[in-house]
């Protein structure tokens, strides 16, 4: 089966400094992959590369049969202007963007879909609340409802359970598992190793350069985790050009 996602010697970064360095590998369709690593390991950078916000400095990322805009991407929620006066219903409805576009109307079917998605994350009755009135956990539930509506084959979740209580993360994790049984490809950046061991069959341990990638049990060994922690976080301003860099491949 063709890979859903293929990394060909990808280097992603900022101002020529690599944040993800020489990553190669494939993600099969329907995979449930945890991306773990210390802060600054390049997890978010990798996701930004996958959805096309960040162009690789070298190498390429192939998305198989989908285009970057068909990926459902849940960034760390700090990037949303929560003071904006918009209702939970309208905000969640943006998940239908792919089918309604900029002008398509929301008919009765779409309205029902939005209500269903909100119900699935336990936000019934919140439809007309302004998004600024939601708690952190409710906000995350709403963002998951939007991912539900996006109905995407590839779902990328950036630290979805940060600062979320146990019950909310259990509810949201159930959704992740539902997506897995629906054969969607799910990638999640996570810090909770127990949660990863219990729920994610496959893990990529990243510390700027990939440390290990494979079945979770074999990746999350104490040796590997130690190695990941030892990587330095700071960019070296005096760093020379990477000798290992091959010219970027055509996509």
């Amino acid at each position: 089966m063709a890979a859903q996602l293929q990394f060909r010697d990808v280097t992603l970064g900022y101002d020529r400094h690599p944040a993800v360095h020489h990553l190669s590998g494939e993600i099969a369709p329907g995979a449930l992959l945890a991306v773990v690593g210390p802060n600054g390991a390049g997890k978010s950078t990798l996701f930004r590369g996958i959805v096309g916000i960040l162009k690789p400095l070298a190498g390429s990322i192939a998305l198989g049969n989908v285009s970057a805009r068909d990926v459902a991407y849940l960034p760390q929620s700090a990037e949303i202007d929560r003071s904006f006066p918009i209702s939970v219903f309208d905000f969640t409805g943006s998940g239908l963007w792919r089918s309604t576009g900029a002008f398509g109307g929301l008919g009765r079917r779409e309205r029902e879909k939005i209500l269903e998605a909100l119900a699935a994350v336990g936000l019934n009755g919140f439809e007309s609340r302004a998004i600024g009135t939601l708690s952190g956990g409710q906000m995350q539930r709403m963002l998951f409802a939007r991912v539900l509506l996006q109905d995407a084959d590839v779902i990328v979740l950036d630290e979805p359970f940060n600062a979320i209580d146990a019950r909310t993360s259990a509810d949201l994790l159930a959704l992740v598992q539902r997506w897995h049984t629906e054969k969607r490809t799910v990638l999640a950046a996570l810090h909770d190793m127990d949660l990863v061991r219990a729920n994610f069959p496959e893990t990529l341990l990243l510390a700027r350069t990939p440390v290990a990638w494979g079945p979770t049990r074999e990746v999350l060994t104490s040796d590997n985790l130690l190695k990941a922690r030892q990587m330095c976080e700071a960019f070296d301003d005096g760093a020379a050009a990477c000798a290992d860099t091959k010219p970027a491949q055509a996509a």
């Binding site: 096309g52 943006s94 002008f103």
Partner: peptide
Amino acid sequence: VIYRPLVMECVDPLFLRVA
């Protein structure tokens, strides 16, 4: 015409950049 993208660009610009 631009109402919906404009609202989304205000509230969640990253979403629109991906979409």
